[in-house]
Design a protein around this nucleic acid. Structure first.
Lengths: 329, 329
DNA sequence: CTTATTTCTGCAAACGTTCCCAAAGAATGC
DNA sequence: GCATTCTTTGGGAACGTTTGCAGAAATAAG
């Protein structure tokens, strides 16, 4: 592939001069500029950014690690963050960890080697090894979805405890008194633990609740369905159900309908995330809106700021949520 | 940041030797290896991949351009392609064109500068300028979603004409005879033109159809709703509707219900894409399954092959589809 | 037509690696 | 103990840029 050198030879000037016209710097005669430009077109020269990056010690690369692409949260988040990163003239280097803890760590290291300027990490857990890997990173890492502020890792999170609390209030207000919860993997502090904790707090406070059921599943409709079927046989007096995600909630409603009860009437159901699915299902799903695109944007902004200033002026940013009331509660 | 040089000085050997232990090459004494390793840990050395890439003339980077992240097609496609790219030890450099034709071209150029090894392009159109940009790329480009084989651009597409044809058959078989179509932007050959064309062919063949309505909207539920409302007033005898995407179809069903007709009974409705939305809505949506994750994977494989062999052994790959019969048709 | 000033251009070092080549050290054979 | 072979190490060029510095060319001034 043609390099600066060839263009120089072809146009009879030095590499320096060619470099100058490419970066159109001040101080090159119009006639030579033209001459060089012609040579560039002629031999189809394409600047080598790798060499530039090395020389300039700057890659304009932001590493992004996600557990999966095709979920409401990550897809929207990616849409948000990519817009601000690209706005800043930088590029997204994307890695899909496929929820594999090992891979997350591997990618952090690889990204460091690639000399990314910072890393955005969509986390579904936060264990010892991951914290260590983040600490060892030579470039800033910002966490999305889990709270790493205890370890001094800047984090953008949603108000999961608040959502849980609010869910309890809404269910009680709607008349439920035997309330269940369907969470996910308990490693996922934010989605499972925090939302459950908020719910518990809320119910203790209102003192109306006798029992609390805590089941765990995956992030799918199917798993919500299975879990709820189980729950219904184990605990027939169930009349309120808080699901850690909208997909789970939709599966739950299906199970409820099949058990000849009416979701939203016999059993109040609440999800979280405001997935489009909840708008179109019947009955439509009451839920909480999480502004995933916004949290994606925010996290990118925080990271860019961190890269610029070397100093975090925000170590934790908790995004608010919004009640979405539809038919199921 | 500590480089090879510092490690060398610290451990009292040459750069060459340090390089050798890092790449654990054969022929370095165990004792020095150890010594060097200690120095590496000590000064927290992280190999500089940029320098390596330059020296080795290889970046292991694959550029991926998408029109948006948060759609069923791209999210699933991304999931598929990232898995095979990462399997191959390469990385995904992601760009979101936000459906801006200019940006697509811009990114192709930027990716060439970045010395990616190949480009995967999710296209929503294919005009002169884009073809030119692709032709000028010094690295292979494979197109996903639009047929570029006429221009000798390797393409992975879905059988859009086939889907349209099949849709006509299914609608007629279900008893419809006044069939409408709701497409999208007509620049989108695959989604708009081809699907419509297939439908037309199918209906001509069966000779049962009097009229064909052709409306165009966006990719959203809302637009499907609006378009259908219009269609219903313009053409009251409508009894079959083929929508270019599932989201449009869902909006359509809403409009139909509001007009006091029953989707799936009074008016048969068919979408395409097998979006999860279609499973949960009422009535559930009959559609066609497009294996987006698979087309993502395939396209990555084709590209990797192209990079390896410099010679395309496949210039066009059309993915089959699957009928999904639910309540709406 | 000098000299001083300004504008333009080229040389060469540097960025952090890899890897060829030669040289030094260690081991072996006689 | 010396030649021979094998293992281990170091020197330095190269990858394709950018950029400080100095020198050349052009222009302005006297």
């Amino acid at each position: 592939m043609a390099g600066l050198h060839e263009v120089a030879k072809l146009s009879g000037v030095s590499k320096s001069t060619v470099s100058r016209v490419i970066n159109n710097e001040y101080g090159v005669k119009a006639s030579t500029k033209e001459k060089v430009q012609k040579a560039i077109d002629e031999c189809g020269y394409v600047a080598n950014q790798v060499a530039r990056d090395l020389k300039l010690q700057k890659t304009n690369l932001i590493g992004v690690i996600v557990p999966r692409m095709s979920s409401n949260a990550t897809a929207k988040g990616l849409d948000g963050l990519s817009s601000v990163i690209e706005q800043a003239g930088k590029h997204v280097l994307l890695a899909n960890s496929q929820q594999d803890n090992e891979k997350e760590i591997e990618y952090i290291k690889r990204f460091n080697q690639k000399r990314v300027e910072g890393i955005l990490l969509y986390a579904t857990h936060l264990d010892k090894a991951l914290v260590k890997a983040i600490k060892q990173s030579t470039v800033p890492v910002v966490l999305i979805g889990q709270d790493g502020s205890l370890f001094n890792i800047p984090s953008i999170i949603h108000d999961d405890v608040g959502v849980g609390f609010s869910a309890g209030m809404r269910l009680v207000e709607a008349g439920a008194s035997n309330i269940g919860f369907i969470g996910v993997n308990s490693q996922d502090i934010a989605v499972d633990q925090c939302r459950f904790q908020g719910l518990t707090q809320s119910l203790q406070h209102s003192k109306q609740i006798s029992a609390l059921f805590h089941s765990r599943g995956e992030f799918t409709i199917e798993s919500g369905y299975q879990q709820t079927k189980q729950l219904l046989t184990d605990w027939p007096q169930l009349d309120g159900l808080f699901c850690a995600t909208d997909r789970i909630a939709i599966g739950a409603m299906k199970a409820i309908s099949e058990a000849n009860k009416i979701p939203g009437k016999d059993i109040k159901v609440l999800g979280v995330g405001n997935d489009e699915l909840g708008q179109v299902c019947t009955p439509s799903l009451s839920t909480f809106n999480y502004a995933f695109d916004l949290s994606g944007k925010k996290s990118a902004q925080v990271l860019l700021d961190l890269i610029e200033n070397k100093q975090a002026d925000v170590s934790k940013l908790v995004m608010s949520f919004e009640n979405i009331s539809r038919q199921s509660c």
